[in-house]
Design a protein around this nucleic acid. Sequence first.
DNA 1: CGATTATCTTTACACTGTCAAGTTGAGTAA
DNA 2: TTACTCAACTTGACAGTGTAAAGATAATCG
Lengths: 185, 185
Amino acid sequence: MPARGDLPQMLIEAGLAILDEEGAEGLTLRRIAARAGVSHAAPAHHFNGLPGLRIGIATQGFQDFRRELIATRDAQPADAGAFQRLLAVNLTYIRFARRHTPLFRLMFDQLPTQDPDLRSVARAAYVVLQEHCQPFVRDREAAPFETAVWALTHGFAMLNMDQPYPPESPVQVSSYEDALRLLVG
Amino acid sequence: MPARGDLPQMLIEAGLAILDEEGAEGLTLRRIAARAGVSHAAPAHHFNGLPGLRIGIATQGFQDFRRELIATRDAQPADAGAFQRLLAVNLTYIRFARRHTPLFRLMFDQLPTQDPDLRSVARAAYVVLQEHCQPFVRDREAAPFETAVWALTHGFAMLNMDQPYPPESPVQVSSYEDALRLLVG
DNA sequence: CGATTATCTTTACACTGTCAAGTTGAGTAA
DNA sequence: TTACTCAACTTGACAGTGTAAAGATAATCG
C-alpha cells in the first residue's frame, strides 16, 4: 500500500490498478497521474517519462509475482511430494498470467529494456521455479531441464491467458499436469 | 507483393515493413498510410480503424508464418526421421519469433479479438505443428501431447525472442532440441 | 531569517486516431 | 452526350497523448 506522499509508489499502484481494471490501453501517463491525484506532468520528476514508469510498474509486477509463487510454495503440506510442489508453483505461474494478463504482458515486454532493478526481481522470481526443479535433475545437467520446464510453463501461461487457441483444442489449465509429467519423465 | 491500386494489401505490407524496421511503436495509422502513399484517413475505408488494420496485419503475419513452417517441412530430406522433422519445424517457429519479434507479439496479441479470418489462418498454422506430433502420440491421447509440444515451443520462442532471461542461464535455441527430446520421451 | 532545492503545476507543442465533409473519377443509364 | 451514382480518397477539425519549459510552492538548510 502506498504511503501518502510517496508519489512514485502511488503512481505504480495506480498503474497496476488501471492495468487490471481497464487493460493495457488505459495505461496512459495522464490517467495514471489523475488516478494518483496529481497533474499529468508530476510523474516526470520520479520516472523517466512513460517508458520509465512502465518499467517501474513491471518491476513491481515481478515482485508481486514472486510473492505469489513463494506463498504457494509455503502453503504446501509438509508431506507433499516434489512433483506436487513443482506443479503447484507452476500452476500459480499460469494463473497469475490469466488473472493479470495485461500486467503479465507488460512485465515480459519490458524485460529487454535491461533495467537493472527489473532484471534483478525477474531473476528472483525465476529462482523460485528453478529450485523446484532440483529434485528432478538427477544425472542430467540442471540448466537445460530447468529451461525446458520454464518454457513449457511460460508457453502454457501465454497460450492460456486470453482465450483458448486453437478453439477446437484449447490449452486448458487442467491439462498442464499431464504435460509437466511428460517432461519430468 | 501488393498490386498497385490494391490499397488494403499495400497498407498491410507497409505495416509489416514498419514492424520489422521500427518496431511496434512505429506502427501508427498515419505512418502506415504515409508509407503506402495515401492520406491518413484512407485506411478507414478498408479497415475498421487502427484496430482493424492491426488485425489485418496479424492475419497476414500468420499466413507468412504458416508458409515458413510449410517451407521447412517440405525442405526436409526424404530420409529424415520423425523427430528431425518435428524439430526442424519447431525451430522455424522459434526463429520466426526472433526474426519478426514485434510482428510475432502483435499476432498473438490480436488472437483474442476472435476475428474469423485471423482465427482461421492461426489455426492453419497450428495444424502444421500438430501433424508433426502424430508419429509420437502412440497409445496416449493426441491432444494433451500436442498441447505440451506447442506450449514448450511457444514458451521457448517467447523467452528467446528479445533477449536471454535470466541472463545467467539464457534460453538458447541450441538447447531446444534437448528440451523437445525430454518431451517426446 | 534568507536562500536553495526538490516537488509539483501550468502552459504549450507536436503527434495520434477518429470523425464529418468535401473532392475526384470511373462507371451507368437515359 | 449528359446527368447521376457511388466508391475511393483527401481535407480539415477535434479530443487525447507524451514531453518539455517555465512558474509556483513548500520544506530544508546554512
